[in-house]
Design a protein around this nucleic acid. Sequence first.
DNA 1: CTCCGTTTGAAACTCCCGTTTGAAACGATC
DNA 2: GATCGTTTCAAACGGGAGTTTCAAACGGAG
Lengths: 220, 220
Amino acid sequence: MDPNQSETRLRLLQAAGEVFAEQGFRKATIRDICSRAGANIAAVNYHFGDKEKLYASVLQHWLGEAMKKYPPDGNLPADAPARERLGAFVRSWLFRMLGEGTPAWHGKLMAREMSEPTAGFELLMSESVRPMAQRMNGLMKDLLGADADERMVRNCALSVAGQCCFYRHAHEMIRRLYPDHKNTPDQIEHLADHVTRFSLAAIEAYPRGKKDRSAVPSIQ
Amino acid sequence: MDPNQSETRLRLLQAAGEVFAEQGFRKATIRDICSRAGANIAAVNYHFGDKEKLYASVLQHWLGEAMKKYPPDGNLPADAPARERLGAFVRSWLFRMLGEGTPAWHGKLMAREMSEPTAGFELLMSESVRPMAQRMNGLMKDLLGADADERMVRNCALSVAGQCCFYRHAHEMIRRLYPDHKNTPDQIEHLADHVTRFSLAAIEAYPRGKKDRSAVPSIQ
DNA sequence: CTCCGTTTGAAACTCCCGTTTGAAACGATC
DNA sequence: GATCGTTTCAAACGGGAGTTTCAAACGGAG
C-alpha cells in the first residue's frame, strides 16, 4: 500500500544505485536505469518526480543501508579505550567505502559527490560528514591528550580521513599501479590494520615541541 | 607560424582548463569554452578535432605547466637527507594540487580523473602517477630502512599520498566543515608541514614487531 | 459489474549540445 | 593585384536524453 515501499520503486533505487555509482549522475541515463529495473521510462517521473530527485533518494537510501550494515562505532561500547575505538572507526569506514555487495554503491556515490558536488551534497554533509567529523574529533582529543590544540586535532583527523578515503577516491589508480590490489574483505581488514597502526604511531610520536621545525626544514 | 602556438589555440586551452576543472568533462560545453575564449564554436574542431582531443590537450598542457612550476623534487639535490626530501616532495605536491593561480586547473582535473577516469586517464598514469609513485617508493625505502618489506613500503606510500590528495578531493567538504580553511600559500605551507611531521612520526614509530597485533585488536 | 484511484506502457515532444558545412576574411607570396 | 593556404564565422544538422502525454491495464470497494 505504502507507495514508498512499492516493488518497482525499490527496483529503481537498486538499479539507479548501480548505474549512478558506475557512471556518475550526468552520464547515467534514465532509460538505462529503467531498463535494468524492468520498468518503463515514465516510472521515474511517476515515483520520484525527475532524475535529480531520484538521485537524491538513491543517495539517502544507500547511505542508510551502509550505516546500518557498518555502524561507525563498530559496535564497540562508548567507553572502550580510544585506540580500540579508532581501530573500529577506521575499519567500519573502510568497509562502508570499499565493501562489495549490495550496499557498495554508497562508497562510490560518496566519492563522486565529494569531487563533484550535486544537489545531494548538503544531504551527505548533514547526515554523514558532520556526524563522522564530530566523532573523529572526539577520538582525536582522547588520543592526543589535553595539551593538543584545535588545529592539531583537526589536522590529525584529516590525516586519518585522507588515508581512509584514498582507497576509494584513487581506487582506479591504485588498481593499475598495483594489479594485485583487491578489495576483498580480508584485504580491507589489512588496510584497516595498516591505517590504524600508521595513525596511532603518528599521533603518539607527533613532535609536540613548539617551534621545533627541525624535522621539516623549510625549503628555500 | 607554428599552429601549436596559435593565439586562439592558447586561449582555448586556458578557457577549457577553467571550464573542465570546474564543471567536469561532460557538464562542460564547447559553446561555453569558446565563448570564454572569445572564439567561434568551430574553433575547437579546427584546432583540436573534437571535444575529447581538446580535453586530452588540456590535461597534458596544464600537467606540464604545474610540473614546471612545482617540480616533484622541490629543487632539492638527490643526495639530500630522506626526511628533507619527503618534506619537499609533500610540499610541491600540495602546491601542485591546491595552489591557486593560472595552473590551478591541474589539481582539479587530476582529482576528477581519479574518481571518474576518461580517455585521458592513461596519459596521467604514465606521465604523472607512475613517476610519482616510483619516487615515493624510493623515499619510503630510504626512510623505513632495509628491513621493510614491499607491502609496508606500499602501504606507507599510500598513506602519505592519501593525506596529500585528500585536501584536493575533499576540498568542498572541508570548506563547509571548517569555513576558515583556505588554500592560501601560507596555509598550504602549514598543511605540508603537518603532513610531513605526521608521516615521519608514523614511519619512524611504526610498530615493526611481527605478529604484534596488540595495537589493533581485531574487533569481532 | 461498475467505478475509480493507482500504476504501467508506448510514443511523441523539446531542448541541448557536439559536429559539420560552406562561405567570408585575412595574409603572405609571387 | 591575383592566388592560395590558413583561420574565422554564422547557420544548420543530427542525435541523445529528460520530460510529458494520454491511453490501457490492474485491483479493490460498493
